[in-house]
């Protein structure tokens, strides 16, 4: 075991960790923003609103993330002249942009299905009470349904964020230097394969259980009113 290489490459791993976190946080935030309207459309009774979202979710949940990344990163090359004309090629040329875009679309599909479950899990009585108070439309969603749905969906959403953090390792395949990318490049040069991949695995473990810890704290916070034991403390 060559511990020297591990220590030597720690600064690179730190940079890689920052890239991993950046990409994950960006995709989580953008995915969340996308998935809220998507989930509301998904529970609509109008088939013209419901079906496109259903198809989008089915496609992105039914195909591997790697295919989606390649479809956007390499596939956009097939439309280079068109994308140049509309001024988008400068974005699609960048691996970073394509990585964030594909991770965002992927997590939006999974998250909107999770939120759909949350919305459908909101007790009917709460919605009726809100309507009786005169709320409807946006106000009803903003004040009553979405907060309640988010509480119900939170544990599943935690899992999705953890999966996204791990899935972000795939961006190393399209040349980005995240944690996995650093491990791959450094090990290819030094032949210290297991040392470096074990280091990468260790960093991911810390990040994953860190995310779980934070999300569990938030869960306690947002469900505090359902937990009488917190009243005494």
């Amino acid at each position: 075991m060559e511990t020297a290489i591990i220590i030597e490459s720690l600064p690179k791993f730190l940079d890689g960790t920052l890239v991993t976190l950046q990409i994950t946080v960006l995709s989580v935030i953008l995915g969340f923003i996308l998935s809220v309207p998507l989930s509301i459309m998904r529970v609509s009774k109008n088939p013209f609103i419901k079906t496109p979202v259903y198809c989008f979710n089915f496609y992105f949940r039914g195909t591997p993330l790697l295919v989606q990344i390649f479809l956007i990163y390499y596939g956009s090359g097939q439309f280079q002249s068109f994308l140049t004309d509309v001024g988008l090629w400068q974005f699609f040329r960048e691996a970073y942009f394509c990585a964030v875009l594909s991770l965002t679309l992927n997590t939006a599909a999974y998250t909107s299905e999770i939120f759909r479950g949350g919305i459908q899990g909101v007790p009917v009585g709460e919605i009726e009470a809100a309507r009786a108070c005169g709320m409807s439309g946006t106000l009803l969603y903003r004040r009553i349904i979405m907060p309640a749905a988010l509480r119900i969906a939170w544990p599943a959403y935690t899992n999705e964020v953890v999966f996204l953090l791990q899935a972000s390792s795939l961006v190393s395949i399209i040349t980005l230097m995240d944690i996995t990318g650093v491990a791959r490049v450094v090990s290819a040069r030094s032949f210290a394969f297991y040392e470096l991949f074990l280091t990468a695995a260790g960093i991911y473990l810390v990040l994953v259980y860190g995310v779980i810890f934070v999300f569990k704290r938030v869960e306690k916070r947002i469900t505090a009113h359902l937990n009488p034991s917190m009243l005494t403390s």
Partner: peptide, 14 residues
Amino acid sequence: GIPELVLILLVYYG
């Protein structure tokens, strides 16, 4: 807690 890709590379190369 570890991405699949890292484990696959760990087993194949490591």
